[in-house]
Design a protein around this nucleic acid. Structure first.
Lengths: 214, 214
DNA sequence: CAATTTCAGTAACAACGGTTACAAACGGTC
DNA sequence: GACCGTTTGTAACCGTTGTTACTGAAATTG
């Protein structure tokens, strides 16, 4: 669904100078996506950069054997650095982006983005800081995967999910969790059970309730 | 050691327009580093971007517990995307860069880099493609660490090292390898022994010779 | 409400990697 | 050649994770 970018632009009014905000009105398009919608898939190229107005987008990697791994979330006010690159250089994406919740996006066509880089310092800075955040998060992700045990990663995963859902109750199956952490359902069941025994959470069918001392 | 950027600029003459190459002459500085020199460390900020004229720079992450992990190499003609960011935003680096061999760098001060982004499309493109390459390599690194077994990672590591050294003989102790792969010396010795038994390589003291069917 | 599918709990086992400890080999130095 | 620090080889052990298999509970469908 596409509409004109009316008030949505306010989300970004702290970042950008008025002249650039004005350009948003004419050159960008609002897009609404539903939770679960695939925004960009591996191998695709894209011709517009989505800035997240509201909602959250989950970015993950799927390797050659089809195993998935959650990389990071892109939140309101942010944008995905991989997409900048993919878009600017017209290259195939190496990641997958899925709406984690219903979200609103402000789509900037590639030509505009390119032009703005030279025209508006605030845009250049926005792009650069976004890239920096992503790099930092990728590095953190590597730290985790390389050095942390699964139980720690699981706890972090649950906390992150809870923060995004703004709820202590998560509607997730053990299988889904296993997929996003790149491991096996049984392993997750085992670890969750341990956490339940330690009074860190409660397990229901397709649902997990986090307790405060997680 | 600093000298004027005489002929070194030729390395980049395929990438950049003449006007920009001319600016290199006045605004950039040549720096020579020896193998093992630390170019940037965790937590540092940097005020000039090094483009690699010749040689190789090893980029690695060291986590909170002091464990190291090799992320990628930056080769001749390239530059490190993390450094672009770190430099442009004056933020602390989250990675460490060490010269893998004796290398020559062309250092561009931050102000020039910033100005060139708006002035020269070729520079903007260069920066963007470099970022893209790094992202891709970080994702590959995550793939490996998350899904590959150590023996596969070790083989890839040895091949990469060999390619950079342009030699089938590597001067490395098992301890060094363990450090770069984020694991333990004994584990590396074990795996290397297995590879030697399979006629993939030969182990000497502080030296490994790769055989063709590795 | 019966049938079927999906989800979770559990056991048993294997494989891998991390750890400690110790011995042997190597390379320098005196 | 004797000594010493570094490097490598090896064994034994353990915890974590991956895997398979089976059971029962819960949800969905007809």
């Amino acid at each position: 669904m596409l509409t004109q970018p009316v008030n949505y632009i306010d989300t970004f009014s702290d970042f950008f100078e008025p002249a650039l905000l004005a350009e948003f009105e004419t050159k960008s398009m609002i897009m609404e996506v539903k939770s679960g919608d695939v925004m960009i898939n591996m191998g695709q190229t894209i011709r517009a950069i989505p800035l997240i107005v509201s909602g959250t987008v989950k970015v993950s990697r799927i390797n050659d054997e089809g195993q998935e791994l959650l990389l990071y979330y892109v939140k309101s006010g942010e944008s995905c650095a991989m997409t900048f690159n993919c878009c600017m250089l017209a290259q195939a994406s190496v990641i997958k982006g899925v709406a984690e919740e219903d979200s609103v996006l402000l789509c900037v066509p590639q030509e505009a983005m390119d032009e703005w880089m030279t025209k508006y310092p605030s845009w250049k800075k926005y792009v650069m800081s976004n890239m920096m955040s992503r790099f930092t998060e990728m590095v953190k992700c590597i730290d985790e995967v390389a050095f942390k045990k699964l139980d720690e990663r699981l706890v972090k995963y649950l906390k992150d999910k809870s923060a995004i859902a703004k709820s202590a109750v998560l509607n997730l199956t053990h299988q889904q969790i296993g997929d996003e952490l790149g491991t096996n359902r049984v392993v997750i069941s085992r670890l969750l059970k341990k956490l339940e025994n330690d009074n860190k959470l409660l397990i229901y069918n397709k649902q997990i309730k986090l307790l405060k001392d997680l």
